[in-house]
Design a protein around this nucleic acid. Structure first.
Lengths: 342, 342
DNA sequence: CTGAAAGCGCTTACAG
DNA sequence: CTGAAAGCGCTTACAG
């Protein structure tokens, strides 16, 4: 990149250099670069030629038309989940004239540090952290940057004292479980997400609350650890079905795990929902088209993204934030993967 | 945003203002802002306080640590397809210290124009256009910006004379069709993508070539128009099965359409692959977990993203580009949605 | 550890 | 339509 701003001769490509080459003044080149109309056609043509030849690029940004950037940071970009959030954020940001810089830090400190450096260099106007697990050191550094922050689906307790946006995970966990109970299921397996995440806890607690409210004792052996991915759902479901008294229904706390669970059941020759009912969590667009179409708890991911973008933008404008913690409603979507207990 | 840079009193928040408030010199504030170590702790603390109170933000970028941004532009951000490309681009860009600005222009001229303006303001260092259908006017404007461009999965003929990166769509279409022919299928339905896209044409031509090479006459009524989405696959499959002589196998030229097709078959009480075989195209991560796991043509989307990023980065550094047109190999992945003709 | 000085790339009135 | 001048926000040696 640094090479790029040098011409073949080795001189830096600035408007000063171009002006010298064209035999015009610096302000004139500036006018051409900015597409102003008050330049003679021949002058403009000559300068534009030189600009192209030397590969001129603006080297500073000017107050007024500053970069206008929002940073959207994920741990990983490996699920259809992410694209929904990106979509929401991008829509709002784009409309406001902001670019959306998407990053993945893979939970690696080095990667996070590199991102932080880049963030600083690009003078981002706002940061949206998605279920982020930044190290405390970086929190401090981030705060020093004085940039508005919003956390979507916070991983743990509010370490950053930034506004957070989430979904009603507890209520969603409860609704899914009540649906299964209503169908007559009494032994309901639960496949949990990573325990360090707040949303995992909330979904599990919702499940527990519903089971207990129905007067059923919570059997801890029915709660299996998962990781939100297919693989984890597949494995956990296998273990559930190996139980002495296997469940008749499974609530996987992510759609991907639900799909993994269905595959595990299929491999055992069990039918969904005739033999075992399955509920997911997220309502990714594709689960409508799986076989059978998945009953799941809808999380308004696009809306969460939009709200997050609006919230950072508001902060960037110095406006007041309504609430430090917003939870958008989840909604049970009943499709064909659940049925009355046989 | 413009308001943001003014303090309560109405004065602009520059390091000059902060220096005055703190009773130190401008260079000292500059040092604090840049996290340099050679500042007395008390001075640093005082300046940092003021910085925070006034909400200071850097107003210019400085040559050397320029923004370092790559723009990645989609028509729409509505498929799991997109996240794969993003993942590849982000990985390479991040490693090189570049931010990845993701945009969707929805094929709307206004949206594209807005994006172009933003691109200019943020002084992006490179642009990756994904199956872009930019208007010719914008091509001209984009060229004037003098920014390196790469087109991934080009929509049509090379209007921009930028390097393009794609997959071997024709070979993929051929491989999928040969697989079905090898299983004894003779009436193979084809569900096409949007006709204006080059990749749609290539896949269809590959299908045609394989059918003809097998000595079977291509029956045009077996070729249905789709749109790459579930819905289109669902509808097209319905029409195929309504034919007087329906196909025994279906090659949908995207995974989403294949999933839609499977759902259509399921609703008609037809089993996959026992009654009808189905092949997709893309190999999205989730199709491994559908029922049945989908036989499909793998497109190396992440690699395509990586290669695109490396290519713009190379151009940005003024290096030579190997080839103006790169095609990464597709690969047939046989899973459980295809079987010998019953 | 700090500041006065010089300099950067760019833009804005202002005068012609 | 153009340029000389002044100015912007910031940074870099350099001297102490």
């Amino acid at each position: 990149m640094t090479e790029q701003v040098r011409a073949a001769g080795g001189r830096k490509v600035t408007i000063t250099a171009i002006a010298a080459a064209a035999g015009v003044s610096v302000p004139t080149v500036s006018r051409v670069v900015n597409g102003r109309s008050d330049v003679a056609p021949e002058t403009r043509a000559k300068v534009e030629d030189l600009l192209r030849q030397h590969g001129y690029r603006r080297r500073t940004t000017v107050p007024g038309d500053r970069a206008a950037l929002l940073d959207l940071v994920f741990n990983d970009l490996d699920s259809p989940w992410a694209v929904e959030i990106i979509r929401g954020v991008e829509e709002v940001a784009h409309a406001a004239g902001f670019g959306t810089v998407v990053s993945a830090i893979h939970g690696r400190a080095g990667s996070a540090r590199q991102w932080m450096k880049n963030l600083r260099d690009r003078a981002s106007d706002g940061v949206i952290l998605v279920t982020s697990v930044l190290e405390p050191v970086l929190h401090e550094e981030l705060r020093r940057l004085n940039v508005p922050i919003v956390v979507v689906d916070p991983a743990g307790s509010a370490a950053l004292d930034a506004p957070t946006i989430g979904a009603t995970n507890w209520a969603g966990g409860m609704a899914a479980t009540e649906h299964l109970l209503g169908l007559g299921h009494r032994r309901i397996g639960f496949i949990a997400g990573p325990p360090r995440l707040l949303c995992s806890r909330a979904r599990l607690d919702g499940y527990r609350a519903a089971v207990e409210a129905a007067g059923v004792a919570v059997d801890d052996e029915l709660v299996m650890q998962g990781d939100f991915y297919h693989e984890g759902g597949f494995t956990a479901c296998g273990r559930l079905m190996d139980l002495a008294e296997p469940p008749t229904a499974i609530f996987a706390s992510s759609d991907q795990m639900a799909l993994g669970a269905i595959e595990a059941l299929r491999r055992r020759g069990l039918r969904v929902p005739e033999d075992v009912s399955v509920v997911g969590f997220d309502d990714l667009p594709e689960v409508r088209w799986c076989a059978p179409p998945l009953t799941t708890v809808r999380q308004p991911l696009v809306e969460m993204g939009k709200l997050a973008a609006r919230t950072v933008l508001r902060q960037a404008r110095g406006e007041e934030i309504d609430s430090p913690r917003l939870e958008l409603a989840t909604e049970l979507v009943v499709r064909a993967s659940t049925a009355a207990r046989g």
